[in-house]
Design a protein around this nucleic acid. Structure first.
Length: 902
DNA sequence: CAAATCACG
DNA sequence: ACGTACGTGATTTGA
């Protein structure tokens, strides 16, 4: 029969390990009260991964009782060089003990002894009583306790992985020594971290060798006379007292006067229900999700930022869902004037994915699910409800549902609550596109993630069993329904209701229309470009092989680095984590070498070929010769949109050969043209507005060339002096730098000067534009106090690192504190303009279609006869989108293709 | 699946 | 003394 098990855990050493494993992110791990939790997180992982599955018969976590022990009495300097324990860790010790207790484990400490000695003594007790003993620690010296019945697990990297030490493993590491000889090795070697001396000149290697020969320190000294004369012998004699003392300090006690016995150590098992409350206090959401899914009731809730109690919903909520069929559609007519609707697609691209099932319902009347997609578009009561302007529809990702339904020729009208959009506005970090994950982040646990239910990658499959699918869909719908009130209340508390109802929600309708409309791409034009590029690329390829003297993969930075910097002996200017950098800025400094020039040329063309020509050809829809991008409205940290599948916000423009790609973007109808309108210097105008700086505002009010105006100021030019192009270039870099949250280092790198000069330029800038300096300081101070910054439309960005101890993290947060209100307010403005634009086009009965948004510009297609109207109307709407203290300026262009609209 | 590179505002 | 410009997405390598 197997022996009973005794598990002994070194609380102190593991708490330190856990704390320092996540130390660089210590400020990321805090609960709502500001308590640091990084050591708690790590310790909890350890308990989860090692202790709970082990399920020991008896178990103990040992702690140090205080700083002074019998060892400090014997040797004043014992552990004397240790830094003071950081307060961020000290505050976690009490909760750590509580966590241990809730896991059904005894905590123990003993005055005058260290945790090691408690473990040593208990281990021997257990061994004698016939237990199989396992010790978990981060302290390698504990290996001295290993025996036939005692093994030691030492944590490696972090705390969740361990190395197991048995007698055989110790012998392997210590060259044949036994575990109890480790203290003799330590006695000779000393220990710098515990700060005891050993014998000078003897390190681990020599110590092991000496102990191997003489078995122990006392035996070594008995035979010391036989040792031939040497410096080592001299040291051994001189420092005998140190060696004997170190031996004593290194030895873990196995006879500590414990006040507990093995009877006190029975493993009690985990008190899950009590853990729920504890994890809620610590804000351990992941753990709560796990418990919720095990069926434990998550109740109560912690106060959130706005001071309301978060609603936390138990996972074992009753789910009643009925199948909707053509025969029971009458239920739909009884739902009333507010419903939740959720449409499931078989893929993430809603322009192409097939609808597979849906659910509709509300709290009062229950939920109805079906796989019968026809019910949506046939003339049914369901179709009527979706279209009905008087029935409010609560959804998750309105834009996706609107586009998908539009493909079925169904209009979805009157969107109320959009869970995806609202959660994003409340916290841009909640930008997960999975309903389950997002609900859980908002303390609602009665719904799983799609990955949990459907699987991912090759395993992705919608359940075939109706009951399984319908339950998941109903749970999603209920999450939307139940999160509406608490999240809308938060929006109001954050003064973000208008941002939602007047900007983001109407914008999602506008974007749905733009995406559905799509933009026509001339595939033949791209195919012609592809052949030309292919020819030039293969010529370049041969030329590079000749110049390099061998064939290699030019697309591999690794292979290229070897060719350039090893084989050809060029001077590496910059390194990356993995080797030599071969980025443009490096290659440009070497461009007098012929092969480097060819490679730069190759890179440019290969990028255009693979990303733009071939990439674009892949995503043209066969049915309408158009590309339909998806704008991600809930992703960026600043409030900008992003664009995927394909990304139409990074089509080349700066280099002529790339710019040619734009000539493949054409109007969808003969006789139509492409029209574009872009804001001029919108971010700097926003800067002038929110900083209130008079000089900056003056420049815009007088419609000056802003970079030239800045150049005049920072270089102190007299009115009659002209701004030379180099001055203007540098001033432009400074203006950009200010928007990005300037640093002397960054500016110096950008304009190719030294840091000192850059610093002086920045100083002059702030003196010339004092309002900018005042604002920068104020916005950072405000962020440090509130933890977030805001745009003009109350869009929020939380900056958890703004008070971090790490210079890097903190500096980054400070730069974003300056940049986000600027970039984000510009985003607010163009979003308002887009909504008004769409309305104005409809009201004017025009055929013009708004197609694309590229951060500060809008692209349209329109009949040639509407061009004149657009040149007047579009700038008028765009420049009046928001009233600032400086004018907004808009420039317009038209042409037969996007390329020509310049 | 991360890293490197390069396209845009 | 630290080591940085802000925000994105797509492609290709290579562990």
């Amino acid at each position: 029969m197997a022996k009973p098990t005794l598990l002994l855990i070194d609380g102190n050493s593991l708490a330190f390990r856990a704390f320092y494993a996540l130390y660089n992110q210590v400020d990321r791990f805090t609960n709502h009260e500001g308590l640091h939790t990084n050591a708690l997180v790590g310790f909890n992982n350890l308990l989860d991964k090692i202790v709970d599955p082990f399920h020991p018969d008896k178990v103990l976590v040992a702690w140090d009782a205080g700083k002074s022990t019998f060892r400090t009495t014997k040797f004043d300097n014992y552990k004397g060089n240790r830094d003071k324990t950081p307060s961020e860790l000290v505050e976690q010790f009490e909760p750590l003990r509580k966590m241990v207790a809730l896991h059904g484990i005894k905590n123990y400490e003993l005055i005058d002894y260290e945790a090691d000695d408690i473990i040593g003594t208990t281990a021997k007790m257990g061994e004698a009583a016939g237990y199989s003993v396992t010790i978990v620690t981060g302290d390698r010296d504990m290996r001295q306790l290993v025996s036939e019945d005692i093994k030691v697990l030492i944590t490696v990297k972090g705390v969740s992985e361990v190395d197991e030490y048995t007698v055989a493993k110790v012998a392997e590491v210590y060259d044949g020594l036994t575990p109890n000889q480790i203290v003799d090795v330590k006695g000779l070697q000393g220990d710098s971290s515990d700060n005891y001396p050993g014998v000078p000149g003897i390190g681990e290697k020599t110590a092991i060798q000496l102990i191997k020969e003489h078995h122990s320190i006392p035996e070594l000294y008995e035979r010391l006379d036989d040792m031939k004369k040497s410096k080592r012998k001299e040291n051994l004699i001189t420092y005998k007292a140190d060696a004997m003392m170190s031996l004593d300090l290194a030895r873990i006690r196995t006879d500590a006067p414990l006040t507990i016995s093995l009877d006190d150590l029975d493993y009690q098992g985990i008190d899950y229900q009590a853990l729920v409350e504890f994890y809620q206090h610590l804000d351990f959401k992941q753990q709560l999700v796990k418990l919720a899914n095990m069926g434990y009731v998550i109740g109560g809730g912690q106060a959130d930022v706005a001071g309301q109690d978060a609603t936390v919903t138990p996972t074992d909520l009753q789910v009643e869902v009925r199948e909707l069929t053509a025969n029971n559609l009458a239920h739909i007519e009884e739902l009333g004037n507010e419903v939740t609707f959720y449409l499931e697609l078989d893929g993430e691209n809603y322009h192409t994915a097939a609808p597979v099932a849906f659910v509709i319902g509300n709290a009062a009347h229950g939920y109805f699910a079906s796989r019968d997609i026809e019910l949506l578009y046939q003339k049914t009561p369901l179709n009527a409800v979706l279209t009905d302007e008087k029935v409010v529809k609560n959804v998750f990702n309105a834009k996706a549902v609107i586009v998908a339904l539009k493909r079925l020729d169904v209009a979805l009208n009157n969107i109320g609550f959009d869970l995806l959009l609202v959660a994003y506005l409340l916290d841009t970090n909640d930008n997960n596109n999975d309903l389950g994950a997002l609900a859980q982040q908002n303390d609602y646990y009665a719904v799983q993630t799609d990955e949990e239910v459907y699987g991912k990658g090759a395993k992705f499959a919608i359940p075939e069993v109706d009951a399984d699918l319908f339950e998941h869909l109903a749970r999603k719908a209920m999450a939307i329904t139940n999160l509406k009130d608490p999240l809308m209340a938060k929006l109001t508390a954050h003064a973000q209701l208008d941002l939602y109802t007047d900007i983001e929600r109407p914008l999602s309708m506008v974007l749905a229309e733009m995406e559905s409309t799509g933009i026509t791409v001339d595939a033949n034009h791209l195919l012609e470009m592809r052949s030309k590029f292919a020819e030039r690329l293969s010529e370049l390829e041969q030329q590079i092989y000749n110049q390099a003297g061998e064939e290699f993969n030019i697309n591999s930075p690794k292979q290229l680095g070897i060719i350039l910097f090893e084989k050809m002996g060029l001077k590496p200017i910059k390194k990356t984590k993995t080797g030599y950098s071969t980025a443009v800025e490096v290659l440009e400094q070497l461009s007098d070498v012929p092969v480097v020039e060819s490679i730069l040329r190759y890179r440019t063309l290969a990028k255009i070929q693979s990303t733009y020509i071939e990439g674009l050809l892949r995503v043209i829809h066969g049915s309408d010769s158009k590309v339909h991008t998806r704008y991600l409205q809930t992703l960026t940290q600043t409030g900008r949109l992003s664009s995927v599948d394909p990304n139409l916000q990074n089509i080349p423009v700066r280099i002529e050969e790339g710019r040619q790609i734009r000539s493949a973007f054409v109007p969808s109808q003969p006789g139509w043209k492409i029209f574009s309108a872009d804001y001029s210097q919108i971010e700097l105008r926003v800067l002038a507005h929110i900083t209130g700086d008079k000089h900056l505002q003056e420049a815009f009010i007088h419609d000056e060339d802003i970079h030239a105006a800045t150049a005049r100021r920072i270089f102190g030019l007299a009115p009659e002096e002209t701004v030379d192009p180099n001055m203007r270039r540098q001033a432009k870099a400074v203006n950009f730098g200010i928007v990005y949250g300037i640093s002397d280092f960054g500016l110096a790198k950008n304009i190719g000067t030294d840091r000192k000069t850059a610093k002086a330029i920045i100083e002059t800038y702030f003196n010339e534009y004092p309002g900018v300096r005042t604002w920068s300081e104020a916005v950072i101070a405000q962020a440090k106090q509130d933890g977030f910054v805001e745009t003009v439309a109350h869009r929020r960005r939380y900056l958890p690192d703004i008070n971090a101890r790490s210079f890097n993290l903190r500096s980054f947060a400070e730069r974003t504190a300056m940049n986000s209100p600027i970039q984000g307010s510009a985003a607010d403005i163009i979003k308002i303009a887009m909504i008004r634009m769409q309305t104005a086009l409809k009201e004017a009965g025009m055929q013009t279609k708004m197609l694309l948004q590229v951060h500060d510009e809008l692209i349209f297609e329109a009949p040639a006869e509407e061009m004149a109207t657009l040149h007047e109307m579009v700038p008028r709407i765009m420049d009046s989108a928001m009233q600032l203290d400086v004018p907004l300026k808009v420039e317009t262009h038209e042409g037969l293709t996007w390329y020509d609209a310049k």
